[in-house]
Nucleic acid binder design. Sequence first.
DNA 1: ACTTCGTCGTGAAACGATTCACATACTTCG
DNA 2: CGAAGTATGTGAATCGTTTCACGACGAAGT
Lengths: 337, 337
Amino acid sequence: MSVSVREVAARAGVSVGTVSNVLNRPDQVKAETVERVRAAIDELGYVPNAAARQLRAGRSQSLALLVLDVGNPFFTDVARGAEARASQEGLTVLLANSDESPEREANHLDVFERQRVSGILVSPVEGDYTRLEEIRKHGIPVVLVDRGADQPRFASVSVDDAAGGALAARHLLEQGRRRLAFVGGPLRIGQVADRFAGASAAVAEHGSATLQLFGTDEMSLDEGRRVGEALRPLIRETGIDGIVAANDLLAIGVERALLFGPDPIRVPDEVALVGYDDISFAASAVVPITSIRQPRELIGATAVELLLEEASRAKGDRPRHVVYAPELVVRESSVGG
Amino acid sequence: MSVSVREVAARAGVSVGTVSNVLNRPDQVKAETVERVRAAIDELGYVPNAAARQLRAGRSQSLALLVLDVGNPFFTDVARGAEARASQEGLTVLLANSDESPEREANHLDVFERQRVSGILVSPVEGDYTRLEEIRKHGIPVVLVDRGADQPRFASVSVDDAAGGALAARHLLEQGRRRLAFVGGPLRIGQVADRFAGASAAVAEHGSATLQLFGTDEMSLDEGRRVGEALRPLIRETGIDGIVAANDLLAIGVERALLFGPDPIRVPDEVALVGYDDISFAASAVVPITSIRQPRELIGATAVELLLEEASRAKGDRPRHVVYAPELVVRESSVGG
DNA sequence: ACTTCGTCGTGAAACGATTCACATACTTCG
DNA sequence: CGAAGTATGTGAATCGTTTCACGACGAAGT
């Protein structure tokens, strides 16, 4: 059905080897022959078969990016950065979504390994790295994204989440807030745990301040809204005056639930709010949300960079870890009141 | 380097054919042998090579979804729906982003064709379908997504954008608004053109009403903000009292620029606003935004459905077109005032 | 005139899985 | 007991590319 090199070769009156050369090293073929082969390719509508090439090469021209949530603008920006850098190397990025489910993550990893992708960028769901070790043992480089600065065995790009959590909490403390709440979860997600730990540490520095954890099942607008509803009565009862959300989706949801319930809570007057990620929607919320910004596209580009390094890393060298610093972006949700 | 069936076969003391059978039709192999082969697979850490399988099969186990903008929650929801349906068929979805660029679109299509994907779901950038015709002629089924009900030659899933545009405009007219603005672009994007046409038609039904077009280069928050800035002085000068935005990102950006400029415009008091897509952020905007809802996940699932149909379609049968009806979701941005 | 190059091209082997026509060994049936 | 069937396995051929050892041929050097 499909046209192959063999037919192109016949049509152009050359051997298959020559067709392949025209495709891959045209400078080693006489100009006139190149011309003739190109013409045959066009006339027959020949399209190279990537599977065959890949079989021969032992490796595909693609690299995989497996993220926790494609719906989160943070990751789509990371993807954008990765794609830009990868295309400079002639690599295609396969974007996949684990939706924070270990099963989906495992499935995708299986597919990628069978695909013999030339590398995997992954923001892993849980703290179990045995599958990733295995993959790497099979010769596929792995780079942890937005995670794993604590994993000496894998290269990683991340942002210091503990520092980010501390930044958020300290900002609230500076605004005079003392009874803080942390909204986020599940805690098995490393980013969340670290942000919480960082916030806790900052609060601990203040003798008089407290931090209470409100867990969530996922990091979505809807979950934020749910927690917001739960928080609304509690805030006045228990005197909570500051909230750190583990990401902006949660923050937006929480804010909305607080502002528009039957017995609304004023932001920032009654409770101050800080989100995380600084997605563009944070600035467009009802009360624009103070957030922690991360260099998103840079993270993606750096991840690809590390992948290339990994591929050519000598046995002795240690995997590299790049940690970027988060940045506080102050908006109305946390000041005044 | 990599373990192959041959080595597994040797280890288990069987032929390569048997290993393949264990993998693909275990019921035709004696239980004890299956056991032995499975053991060998585990011990050697064998992972099948997808390229080899695919080369033999002539077709990959993946299908491609090429969207205009992965940053737009509309498309990530479509992707979710497609993925769910595809995984029922044992197919993987490759998600790619054309970012509304014809070049990027062409690049991705090339890669997919070389990959011999088992089908392509695409929301095309421009009205040029010759490349897609070519791909289909080469035996790869194509389904247009969110576009192309007017293209008899391709199967398609879409939502009636003209009806949606009309719905939005008519709603504003019913609220007593008469001098309307349409924000969106570029008009070469079919969805935008249709929504504008629908809105124009609805306005034309009212003798006294007018509709003015404000073009954009892309459909993003930032572009919306830019147009909003431009609109702010104009609104009072020219008496514009209603705005239809071609999507919610634009609407959110416009709203924000109107509300927070140096000389703010009240929404909906001075100007009423309707967006399009009903992304979750629309409900969480400063003034929650009235929008046009589309059955997003259903669109993705239906697209995969049509792809399967296409793959087995007889020569005589015509490609199928599914058109869903959009729905108006009223929020504060358009009522009262 | 003879070697030595360089240029251009050839065609078979290899990559790893699947398939299929063909064995082999047991049952079962008449 | 022989024929026919069933269950289980075999291994060579195949998919489409790339690679590589090897010609063929004319130009240049001695």
